[in-house]
């Protein structure tokens, strides 16, 4: 993309890492081991796929190792790369272990939480008013990690009804947070918000609201086709990342 904006790869990466990470975090509060292992697999796949997208998005992909070798802890992206790598190791370790020692579960859980959370901090620490104008992006990304993570577990047939309920509860929290974020940033980021509500990103924003939240909520209330509702929630999670990533840059994607 001209001017080097962050685009579809970044949106996909945020989505995959948060979805897998959310599934793992939620599976940890469940009893059965099968779901926990499934959660760890989903998180590992999400994080590895996300990391590959991140590397493919670089201007010099073969230099990806500079991300760690540069050792620059003040940079959110450097810290993010470190926790991304460490969480992958932790998850892999869990998957190959028969016993899950508490310290390893906790450490991995915290690393996965950091992977989800840092993406919000990364966008906040920029000069883009739509991303940095409110402190709510980490909240939105975390809520969405739970929404999409539990929907993903539902799709894999685990504890469908209860997890679907959890997913939809977080979807409601998430949409309230998105509304609060848009009101909070409105004065500094009018262009971004106009693009989302009625401009060229309206399909993604309204797609998130209607297809990703309202229709699944309705289906849940009707107790209909939970799997389909869960699938729509996942799609909504992507549309959310897409509109946030692109709306933040409407002012600079000019020529």
């Amino acid at each position: 993309m001209k001017g080097g904006a962050w685009g579809i790869y970044i949106a996909l990466y945020f989505w995959l890492a948060a979805m897998g990470g959310g599934a793992f975090l939620i599976s940890l509060s469940l009893k059965d081991r099968g779901t926990k292992v499934l959660g760890a697999w989903l998180a590992l796949i999400g994080i590895v796929a996300g990391a590959l997208l991140l590397i493919a998005d670089l201007g010099e992909p073969m230099r990806f190792w500079h991300l760690l070798a540069g050792i620059h802890p003040v940079s959110v992206m450097w810290l993010g790369s470190v926790v991304l790598a460490l969480s992958g190791i932790g998850l892999f370790w869990l998957i190959i272990s028969k016993e899950w020692p508490d310290w390893l579960v906790w450490t991995t859980a915290i690393l996965v939480l950091l992977v989800v959370g840092y993406t919000g901090v990364l966008l906040m620490a920029t000069a883009r008013p739509f991303w940095s104008g409110s402190p709510l992006l980490p909240w939105i990304f975390l809520a969405s990690a739970y929404t999409t993570g539990s929907a993903l577990l539902v799709l894999f047939g685990s504890h469908s009804e209860k997890l679907a309920k959890l997913s939809f509860a977080f979807a409601v929290i998430e949409i309230l947070l998105v509304a609060a974020h848009m009101i909070w940033t409105y004065s500094g980021a009018k262009d971004a918000i106009t693009a989302a509500i009625s401009g060229n990103l309206a399909w993604a924003f309204w797609g998130f609201v209607v297809v990703g939240v309202l229709i699944p909520l309705y289906m849940e209330a009707q107790k209909k086709a939970l799997a389909l509702a869960a699938l729509l929630v996942l799609l909504g999670g992507f549309l959310l990342r897409y509109f946030i990533v692109y709306a933040g840059q409407v002012d600079v994607m000019r020529f």
Binding site: V74, V76, L113, G117, Y118, G120, V121, L122, M124, A125, T126, S132, P135, L136, P138, W139, L142, A143, Y146, F170, I173
Partner: peptide, 16 residues
């Protein structure tokens, strides 16, 4: 900005 971001993410993680 980074400090505010991590603080907010920490509170979010705790609350959510």
């Amino acid at each position: 900005k980074v400090a505010t971001g991590w603080l907010s993410a920490g509170i979010a993680a705790a609350v959510l």
